[in-house]
Design a protein around this nucleic acid. Structure first.
Lengths: 139, 139
DNA sequence: TCAATTATGCAATTAAGTTGCATTTATGTA
DNA sequence: TACATAAATGCAACTTAATTGCATAATTGA
């Protein structure tokens, strides 16, 4: 399936209206296959207002198209969710890799987050694993 | 050892000058035993300029007293490093727990981050594990 | 095609992070 | 103890990210 078909399907299946901005943003995520920030989108899509891009990201978060990736820089970055994600239950239990050379953040979809032991009385909802280092391209 | 002695010792051992602001900030971290943000410090220490607090956090980061904890909110949070941390080699290979109820971020010092498998060609430098859920106090 | 709902663009605001510079403070040494 | 040097602080100002309100434009179902 082409991205231009797939993006509309993604928006429809998450009950979002089809707009140019949303299609373009989904397209971009489908194409680059890496995590993006608000700033990345602003640079890529100068034809859209930054507030619109901001709200697009938020509607994608709410509807479960994207997930937020924790990082230490203070800039929020977003990655595409698996098809199995729903707004309530996110199934993106994979590892995020941040390259300290090129700065890109990748979702290592095929790498499971290992089991984690937590003290008594704590309830686990989500586990995030962020690995910093040098990616294969920069090594 | 009391905190008021311990904070000076911590500053000295990291080659930082002893100032009121730095002692107070280290004290606070020693006392609360959780991760704090710039905003937390501003609320707690209205007698110090926000820039001073900002630079205090940064000098603590540089000297290895604190480490930055990745999170998805976009607000940088900081936690006390183990005594074994040096500026170059951080040994805070523990799990961070963020409570979705009270919002507090704890360092689970006694919980090791499990081994992680990474694709070929990737070099690992740091591994961060952030667990979201409900802490023992809120459960 | 129309009405209702939703998205967008623009203006403006809040907050975090950052820098420059003058002043004050801490520290080692005489 | 006093002094000189180096560093920390406070203030002003600036940049950028995040956020909200509102009028206008576009989408969608009937």
């Amino acid at each position: 399936m082409q991205n231009q078909d797939r993006n509309e399907q993604i928006l429809k299946s998450h009950n979002l209206r089809i707009t140019d901005c949303r299609k373009d943003v989904v397209d971009y995520f489908l194409g680059v296959k890496k995590a993006l920030s608000q700033g990345d989108l602003e640079q890529k899509f100068k034809q859209y207002d930054r507030v619109t891009l901001y709200r697009t990201l938020n509607s994608f978060l709410d509807s479960g198209i994207l997930h937020k990736i924790p990082n230490a820089t203070g800039v929020a970055t977003y990655g595409l969710c698996h098809e199995t994600c729903s707004p309530d239950h996110h199934d993106h239990n994979h590892i995020h890799f941040k390259c300290n050379s090129c700065g890109q953040i990748e979702c290592l979809d095929d790498k499971e987050v290992p089991a984690v032991s937590i003290p008594k009385g704590y309830q686990v909802e989500t586990v995030n694993m962020i690995v910093d280092g040098i990616c294969a391209k920069c090594a």
